[in-house]
Design a protein around this nucleic acid. Sequence first.
DNA 1: TAACTATGTGAGTATATGCTCACTAAGGCA
DNA 2: TGCCTTAGTGAGCATATACTCACATAGTTA
Lengths: 109, 109
Amino acid sequence: MDKNTRKLYELKAEVFRAVAHPLRLAVIDFLKDGEQCVCDIARHIGAQRSNVSRHLAVMLKAGVVEHRKDGLRMIYSLKAPCILNFLSCVTDLLRRRMEQNRAALKGLK
Amino acid sequence: MDKNTRKLYELKAEVFRAVAHPLRLAVIDFLKDGEQCVCDIARHIGAQRSNVSRHLAVMLKAGVVEHRKDGLRMIYSLKAPCILNFLSCVTDLLRRRMEQNRAALKGLK
DNA sequence: TAACTATGTGAGTATATGCTCACTAAGGCA
DNA sequence: TGCCTTAGTGAGCATATACTCACATAGTTA
């Protein structure tokens, strides 16, 4: 694998990593219905604002969300809604995993 | 956000994290064309087998890949091909980001 | 102007992740 | 049987990430 290919995978992995966190997934789910300010995101998720701010910065850098200023508030919105598709793909995967576990437990009886 | 919702986001994040690594993305891309043994994956990617083995274990646990034994070899294959869709979504995102950067650089002149 | 609100950041700490080396285990073959 | 190949794992280290507290900054409003 040559150096350019490797670099490309690193860039892609950065985007994946920007999404791969429970709190950030919750933010993405919340933004699905429309743009929100940091304070409301923090309130909705139940995390400290400074922490939410950092997580938003990670997603911003990766290009997953975008933001605009409105007075005191910074309004964030989803920039790559196709992430939602993958989220439902992951939900399916979890469901299948759960059913496999259930089947395995049945086999224990 | 209640406890169950939080737990669900953690499970989903685990799957995302299982994919969010340059080497693991390279493996997924390689498996796209069909199942492969660890030795060939390691050779193709140019990484140590012990390291590749660990990465495969992470993806296996998350349900992203599956494996079967064939004599000496352990053959891995993609279990959640829908990841490939998200990969192309990320590729688009990167392309857009690049074009934005290019436009910004033009503005510098 | 002074107090207040929303946001972001520096510093410090705890934890997680990734990598390598050395070793073990399982299977194939002379 | 003895040696080879393939895969996986324990230990140790280096680095990255997440979180919190305290503080700085920008904008709002009395």
